[in-house]
């Protein structure tokens, strides 16, 4: 018997940019269950990154309506670090360079913050080392990158590998991957995708946010959603991605406009 556990439940989410009041998300509905990988595709400006930012608690956005439940808890009322401790992980589109902070030093702090929240003792130095070795292998991270400062001087591909490496160490329940394929050549894409695939598990949910179908050649999602004009206008299986690849986003945007016209 299969028991479905809902990890993420977004209902009628509306959000705007705090600074100028521009509404970006205009009523997003989405349910992601444990074990599922969902892809959110959409043209530039459709609100994909805003959705990732709002879910991770980035400043600069105002939620004006709707709810987001994460494992039944109100996600939006949690500060970013609490979301992370509860098991939400955001892989950044543009990972931040942090001079002066060594990668593994930072990651150990992060892991210990998560463990403390879960009532676990701090990770032992030797255990941490073997965990790092094991997870670094998943994305073929070189040792040199581990001891260097966080993302400082990393290539685009190295930064994205580092994100997936961090994800592997922190073992989240919900992973949100924001444009993980951007800036990657085909080899790096293959490595990153295989890292992500190895982290698929029945307990974990993933949300892939991507402009291009390319990533989905390597990571096969269970469901694909098309975000357009701040709403999900179409959902389907992986064949939808191929359709988008062939026809672009234009036809969906026109359809959405017609649909909206009919409804009013």
């Amino acid at each position: 018997m299969n028991v479905t556990t809902t990890i993420l439940e977004i209902r009628g989410l509306k959000a705007r940019i705090a600074e100028d009041g521009t509404e970006i998300l205009k009523g997003v509905d989405l349910t992601v269950n444990a074990g599922e990988v969902h892809a959110i595709m959409g043209p530039n400006g459709s609100g994909k990154s805003t959705l990732a930012h709002v879910l991770s608690g980035r400043e600069g956005y105002e939620v004006t309506d709707g709810t987001v439940l994460y494992k039944g808890k109100d996600l939006l009322s949690m500060p970013p670090e609490m979301r992370a401790r509860e098991g939400v992980f955001l892989s950044f589109q543009y990972p931040v360079e942090i001079p002066g902070v060594a990668n593994t030093y930072f990651l150990r702090m992060a892991l210990n913050a998560v463990r403390k929240h879960r009532g676990l003792p701090e990770v032992d130095a030797m255990d941490f080392l073997s965990l790092v070795e094991e997870k670094a292998a998943l994305v073929e991270m070189e040792d040199a990158l581990l001891s260097r400062n966080v993302n400082e001087g990393f290539s685009g591909g190295e930064k994205k590998r580092n994100e997936i490496f961090q994800m592997a160490v922190l073992d989240p329940t919900l992973a949100i991957l924001d444009e993980t394929d951007s800036g990657l050549d085909i080899d790096a894409l293959r490595v990153v995708a295989s890292g992500v695939n190895s982290l698929r598990s029945p307990e974990r949910a993933m949300l892939l946010i991507t402009h291009y179908q390319r990533l989905l050649n390597y990571i096969t999602p269970d469901v694909i959603h098309v975000l357009s004009g701040g709403r999900i206008v179409r959902s389907g299986d992986k064949s939808l991605a191929l359709l988008l690849e062939e026809k672009g986003y234009g036809w969906l945007e026109e359809e959405a406009a017609v649909g909206a016209g009919t409804a009013s």
Binding site: P95, A110, V114
Partner: peptide, 8 residues
């Protein structure tokens, strides 16, 4: 924000 998104 990056550090806070990693639980710090």
């Amino acid at each position: 924000f990056y550090l806070r998104s990693r639980a710090l």
